[in-house]
């Protein structure tokens, strides 16, 4: 299987989720190559899991005031604050048959690529089921997966620099009198590359690329016109719509 690597791009939340779906459709139809992509979010955004309630999870007023977007993912899992400069996100989109049938087993395979990447900047990371990667006992990466139409999509974030207080300001947790305690507790549970080593964001990205592509046949590629056109359509009709984002 020959992979396409689409190098680090920056999009808004709706386009990021729409590209994942457009490429998933292409892989299902046999018109898109299995794809590894890296991206960031501009403006910063909060994504929620497919089964989460928008109202329960996101402080929409705080997001509006800060110019932070929000979007519902196609994947399950929890709410994530994607800081424009604080993380690198990846997506893997490929035929389901290329991965173990077991959900946790397939997380383990793809998370292994992240772990290999983090090793490249000197971090010893480990997979923590169900869907996390930890360094020194603290979460540095969260991941989420869906399988539809014979295609596996897994996306996830690798935290480069995390500001827990800022993160919580956009989520519904941490708004009560225990906020300071919750922030302290979260700081005990979450870490980032900057907290663990002196690697730059470029060095992290380079190491992740190596971790994801090592041992694979791949070529650096671009989106096709069909993919871009479909992504634009999905961004407008689905991912930026209240109907989609407020469905639960």
């Amino acid at each position: 299987m020959k992979w396409r690597l689409v190098e680090l791009e920056q999009h808004d939340a709706y386009a990021n989720m729409a590209i994942d779906e457009a490429v998933s459709e292409g892989v299902a139809a046999g018109t898109s190559q299995p794809t590894i992509r890296f991206y960031t979010w501009k403006p910063s955004a909060v994504s929620i899991g497919y089964f989460q309630s928008l109202a329960d999870e996101i402080d929409l007023d705080a997001c509006r005031a800060a110019g932070v977007d929000w979007v519902r993912r196609r994947t399950g899992g929890g709410a994530v604050y994607h800081d424009e400069l604080g993380e690198i996100t990846y997506s893997i989109i490929a035929p389901e048959a290329a991965f173990p049938k077991g959900i946790i087993d397939s997380y383990r395979v793809i998370c292994g690529w992240i772990i290999d990447g983090l090793a490249g900047i000197g971090l010893q990371a480990e997979f923590k089921p169900i869907n996390d990667i930890i360094v020194n006992g603290k979460k540095i990466s969260g991941n989420a997966q869906t399988r539809r139409g014979g295609v596996l999509l897994q996306h996830g974030t690798i935290l480069y620099d995390v500001d827990v207080r800022k993160m919580f300001s956009f989520l519904k947790v941490g708004k009560d009198k225990l906020a300071d305690k919750m922030i302290a507790a979260a700081e005990e549970r979450v870490t980032s590359v900057t907290k663990q080593c002196g690697a730059t964001r470029d060095e992290l990205y380079g190491a992740l690329k190596t971790g994801f592509t090592s041992g694979k046949e791949f070529e650096v590629g671009k989106w096709t016109e069909t993919e871009l056109s479909r992504a634009k359509e999905l961004s407008a009709s689905r991912y930026s719509s209240d109907e989609w984002n407020s469905q639960r």
Binding site: G49, Y50, F51, Q52, S53, D56, R74, T75, G76, G77, G78, A79, I103, I130, N131, A144, Q145, T146, R147, R148, R248
Partner: peptide, 28 residues
């Protein structure tokens, strides 16, 4: 994972249920 359940009932039967949370389910 965290699971939230909201139920509406009329004192006799469940009228509707809504399940939300940060879990995973395939197929969704």
């Amino acid at each position: 994972k965290l699971v939230r359940l909201e139920l509406e009932h009329d004192g006799s039967r469940i009228l509707r249920a809504k399940i939300t949370g940060d879990f995973f389910l395939h197929p969704e």
